[in-house]
Each structure stands twice: as C-alpha cells, then as structure tokens.
Design a binder for these strands. Sequence first.
DNA 1: AAGTAAGCCAACCGCAGGGAT
DNA 2: TATCCCTGCGGTTGGCTTACT
Length: 242
Amino acid sequence: MVRAPCCEKTGLKRGPWTVEEDMTLVAHIEQHGHSNWGALPKQAGLLRCAKSCRLRWINYLCPDIKRGNFTSEEEDAIIQLHAMLGNRWSTIAARLPGRTDNEIKNVWHTHLKKRLDSSLSKTSGQAAPKRKAKKPDVAASTLEDPTSDPVSPEQSLSTSSATDYSMASSLENTGSSSDEFQIDDSFWSETLAMSVDCSGSGMETSDTVAADSASPSSSNDEMDFWVTLFMQDGDMHSLSQI
DNA sequence: AAGTAAGCCAACCGCAGGGAT
DNA sequence: TATCCCTGCGGTTGGCTTACT
C-alpha cells in the first residue's frame, strides 16, 4: 500500500519519529504552544508536515496522555459509549481521561470488538478475550526495556507515563497499585463527565465540559445529554460480566 | 532453533467542517 | 456569497513483536 503522501512537498520526512524529533517538537510546543500547526514544523525546524506533527503530539507526546493497558472499567466504558455513540472516537476519548481517539480506536478493533463478538456468540460463556498472551504489559515493558525500541519516545520523554499508568495516580488519591485499584460508580460518573483535550493548550476541566455542553452544537448537546444520563444511571459495570 | 502466523500499535491518508478573507 | 485554508476526525495500513508449530 503505497499511497500518495498527504502533501507533495518534497523533503518532508515520514514514518516513525525519532527521539530527536520528539524532543524538538515538545520543546517547541512548550515554548510557543501550538496555535498554528501549519507554521509549527517550519518554526521548530522539523522536516515533517503539520498533520504529522499534530498527530504525534496528540497521540503520543502530549503530557496528559496516559500510557499503559486499559483497565476493565475503561474497556467497559468504551463498549458502552460505542454502543451509544458509534465510531465517534474523539467523543468517546473525551470521556476517557488521558486516552486518545486513536488509542481507543485501536483497542476497539483489536480487543473489544472481538470480545463483544465472542460474548454475543456465546450468550452465557465467560468468553474472556482470547488475547494472545503477549507481553505482560506493553507500556510497562516498553518503559522498562530501553532496548526494545530505539525510537520509543516514552523512554526519553515520558514525563507522565510512569506515574500515571494507573487511573489512581492521575485521578484519584487511593495510592493503591493499578492491579488493586478499585473504582466505584461515583468515580466513573464523575470521571467520564470530564473532558480531556490534548489538542488544546492543556488539560481541560469540567468547566470546558460545561462550556462544551452549552455550545450551540445540537448534536453534541444531544450526545452529551444521553451520555451524562447514561453515566448517571450507574450502569457502567453491566458489561463487565461479559 | 527456525519459520510462520497473528496481534498490536504508530502513523498515514482523505474527507468534512468551520473560520477567515 | 464564494473560495481558500486550517484543523480535526475516522478509516486504513505497514512494520514490529510475540506466540505458535
């Protein structure tokens, strides 16, 4: 599959990002922000197109991003939200703090879709996703193994990945490990109402959500309404039995 | 131990919507 | 009002990693 590049500009680099590129991008954004993606690559001295820079920041370098495996609560939330919203990954991501639309989309296609399919085919079976017993923890292993990927930026740039691996460290004060972390319904009703917008200048708060919900956009209003209503229903764990 | 198959994830592309001119 | 440009979104894919034979 060799598609034509998004822009015909020659000399623009493609493919995996190097640590140097990551550091350059992060440093530039920390200093100047990213109000203008179009001009950013040139200003930062990066031989990348604007879209590539933006995507790299949003999906990987943004400090608000939480790395690591999805918790069962997060997976359940994705399933529920997808049932309501469909493939509106960005909307779903907005309700999962620290998760990107791309990540959620990947998880859906690789794990959750199969999980749902298998659960539907076997109505009563405890069909846990027959995941390949891959590396015990992708993010953890990546973080711990400096030889795993020479281009893996979290090794050099992760200001948050090691600490906010669990929901607990980033959102709550439980102090327990990710394995032991317990989340109750009130937590999810609050958490899922939050909106994290890495595309903005920084971490957004519930004020943003309120503003967003109050925006004239009717479709989003409607979705927010139903999502909120759904969350308040406290039914987040209904699919955890699947 | 080597080869093959499958899973996973980062990154790319095209398109659509919104704002600016 | 029409057009252009920028940004964001969703779908898709290549390549790496891991498990299996």
